[in-house]
Simulated scan of single mutants.
Amino acid sequence: MISLMAGAAAPAPGPLHIIGGPKTGGCIAGAVSLPPDGPGFETIHLDRSAFWGAPQTIARLQLFGREAQAAGLPPLLIEDISRARGGPMPGGHVSHQIGLDADVGLDMRPRPPLTEAQRNTVELDSLVRADGRGVQPALWSPRVVTLLHLAASLPGVDRILVNPTIKQQLCREVTGDRAWLRLIRPWYGHAAHMHIRFRCPAGQVDCVQAAPPPQGDGCDATLQWWFDQLDAPVRPSVPHRPPPPPAACKAILASG
């Protein structure tokens, strides 16, 4: 078995306590770790990722792996969840601070299990063309649709962030039941992995729950807006500094 690396400080003891939200930053007590591998999943980039989360998050990711395996998909490649006590992540992942978010690779091409060395060096391929206006035909398949449908069907899912082009391709292909498309939301980047966000668990009064996604399947003008931006003049980038964790996190993070 491979040992957990980044974010491997001991979790804060005690019952589950989540403070903060996806936009404010935050922390978590009572986190548990995702095993390095299990039925239907493998963790990757152990030298720079963190795999701690609320017990509900970890259980649902393990369920996701089992369901993906049962559907004939290759092992899920899971990256960042949160650090042992939450708080700021290397690279500025603000929403990965409270143990309710997880990144999962989208490439569903058949492959054997990765070796230990490969799991640290593998780089996820983008499913989106360089021009941002379509998916890569060699990487897109019905297996990707199955993967995203399974993710959207997990208990407690708040939303799943993917590249707008991936959302667009789903809008074109999915027939029959399209209700789950409501949870698939377009966002910058996310061309090689999905970002799964779970809702605040019951009883977590200090966990800030985001407003739910709008009604409908999201295959409307709000999606077209993302593609209109590709033709808009390039604006200067403004450095983004993640907000500091809420003051209530001080005790949890102090010794973590």
Rank of each mutant, 00 (worst) to 15 (best):
T146G: 04
P112I: 06
A117K: 14
H93I: 04
A151F: 00
A130W: 10
G156T: 02
L154I: 02
A102G: 03
R133T: 12
L127M: 07
D125Q: 15
D101F: 10
G156P: 01
N120L: 09
L148M: 12
R119K: 12
Q136A: 09
W140I: 05
V128D: 13
R129E: 13
R109D: 03
P112S: 13
V145C: 07
A138P: 02
P110W: 14
R129D: 09
G132K: 10
G134E: 06
I98H: 11
Q118C: 11
L124P: 11
A151P: 01
M108H: 02
L106Q: 10
V94N: 03
L150A: 05
V94T: 13
A102F: 05
S141I: 02
A151C: 02
V122Y: 09
G134Q: 05
R133K: 13
L147A: 02
T115C: 13
P142D: 08
D107N: 12
R119W: 12
A130Q: 15
I160E: 00
D125L: 12
G99N: 04
Q97C: 07
Q136K: 10
I160C: 01
G105M: 07
Q136S: 13
G132V: 06
P155F: 00
V128K: 13
L150T: 05
A151W: 00
H96N: 02
S153Y: 00
T115H: 13
V135R: 03
R109E: 05
D158R: 03
